[in-house]
C-alpha cells in the first residue's frame, strides 16, 4: 500500500510513524491492553504518532540517550530533549526512548515509553532545515509525568524494543521509498522528453538511475518474500535504505542537469535535491547501515 501511495505521488501519509513504526513495535512488544488501546486508532489514523529517539548528543550512538525518566511510585518523570521528530507538532502520541537507570550497563538502562503528547510539560519547537522548511521538531520535556503502565516491553528493555522499531522503519519504509523513487524517475523522464537536447547528452546517467530504481523495487519485493517467510524483517532491509538514499541524491541532481536554467531555483527539483541530503542521515546514517550490513549480513568482525 505504501508503495502504491508513493507511486501515485500522494502526500506522505500522516499516520506513517504509527503504521510503519509504532504499530509494528506495539504488536511485537505490547500487552493485550496496549494492543487494543492503540492499534485501532493507528489503523484509522484517528491518532497521530511521532518518534522521540534522537537527541542533540545522541545521533548514530542511540544507546547514549540522556532524556531522563525517573520512576516516582507509579509514575515516570521526564526531563530532557529530543530532536528530528516529524509530525511532533500535530502528534497525539510519541514513541520515546529514555534513560531510566543511569547506573546500569550500556543498553540495559533504557526504557521505551508511549507518551501522550498532550501531557503538561511538553513543548514542541520547529527546527528549520537547509531547505528553509521546518518538517522536523525539537521536543522538550520538563517534569512531564507518564504513568508506569505506558512502558512498552518492560523497564530496562528499551534497547530491544527500539531495535524492533528501527528494523521495521527500514523494512516497511522500503516500499514507500522505492515507490517515491519510481515517481521521481517518472517525472525525470517527462522532463527529459521535454528537453531532448539535454537528455541526449545524459542517456547513460538516465539509464543508470532507472535501472537502479528498478533493481531497488525488485529487491524490496524479494525482501518482502523474506518477511512473509520468517514473519520478521531481516537486516537485508538495510540495503534498500542505503542504496535508495544514494539513488535519490543522484536522481534529484540529474534532474537539475536537464533543466533549461539550472542556475535558477525551479521551486521543485532544487528543493528535492537539498532535501535529499538528509536521506543518508535520517533513519540510520549510511555509515551505520554499512556497519550493520558488514556485521550482521556479511559476518565481518564488529568495528565498535
Amino acid at each position: 500500500m505504501l508503495e502504491e501511495l508513493a507511486r501515485a505521488n500522494a502526500p506522505q501519509h500522516i499516520g506513517v510513524i504509527g503504521l510503519g513504526m509504532a504499530g509494528p513495535t506495539i504488536i511485537a512488544h505490547g500487552t493485550e491492553a496496549q494492543k487494543s488501546r492503540y492499534l485501532p486508532s493507528i489503523l484509522s489514523a484517528g491518532e497521530i504518532w511521532c518518534q522521540g529517539f534522537s537527541e542533540p548528543g545522541s545521533g548514530s550512538d542511540l544507546a547514549s540517550v540522556r532524556t531522563r525518566a525517573e520512576l516516582r511510585g507509579d509514575t515516570f518523570v521526564l526531563n530532557g530533549q529530543k530532536v528530528w521528530s516529524s509530525y511532533a507538532q500535530i502528534a497525539d502520541w510519541c514513541i520515546l526512548l529514555v534513560q531510566s537507570d543511569p547506573g546500569a550497563a550500556r543498553y540495559q538502562g533504557l526504557t521505551f515509553l508511549l507518551v501522550d503528547m498532550h501531557s503538561p510539560g511538553i513543548e514542541v519547537r520547529p527546527l528549520r532545515q537547509i531547505t528553509g522548511d521546518a518538517d522536523f521538531n525539537e521536543i522538550f520535556f520538563t517534569d512531564t509525568e507518564v504513568p508506569k503502565a505506558q512502558v512498552l516491553g518492560g523497564i530496562g528493555q528499551g534497547w530491544a524494543v527500539a531495535m524492533t522499531t528501527l528494523l521495521h522503519e527500514r523494512a516497511t519504509f522500503g516500499f514507500s521509498l522505492t515507490g517515491a523513487l519510481e515517481a521521481a524517475l517518472g517525472q525525470l523522464l517527462r522532463l527529459a522528453q521535454d528537453q531532448p537536447a539535454q537528455a541526449a547528452r545524459l542517456t547513460d546517467a538516465i539509464g543508470r538511475e532507472w535501472i537502479q530504481m528498478q533493481a531497488l523495487k525488485l529487491t524490496a519485493h524479494r525482501a518482502l518474500a523474506q518477511l512473509a517467510a520468517s514473519g520478521r524483517p531481516g537486516p537485508e532491509g538495510s540495503i534498500i535504505k542505503l542504496a535508495w538514499s544514494e539513488s535519490n541524491q543522484r536522481v534529484t541532481k540529474l534532474a537539475r542537469e536537464l533543466l533549461p536554467d539550472p542556475i535558477l531555483d525551479d521551486g521543485h527539483w532544487y528543493y528535492l535535491q537539498l532535501r535529499s541530503r538528509a536521506n543518508s542521515i535520517e533513519a540510520g546514517t549510511s555509515e551505520i547501515l554499512r556497519n550493520i550490513i558488514a556485521e550482521r549480513v556479511l559476518g565481518l568482525p564488529r568495528s565498535r
Binding site: I239, R290, A294, S303
Partner: peptide
C-alpha cells in the same frame, strides 16, 4: 571500515544486480 564498507557496497550492488 576502510576494508568492510567497500565490501558492503559490492554486496549491495550484487544483490541489486541479482534481482534484475
Amino acid at each position: 571500515q576502510a576494508v568492510s564498507h567497500p565490501l558492503v557496497d559490492c554486496y549491495v550492488e550484487i544483490e541489486l544486480a541479482r534481482s534484475l
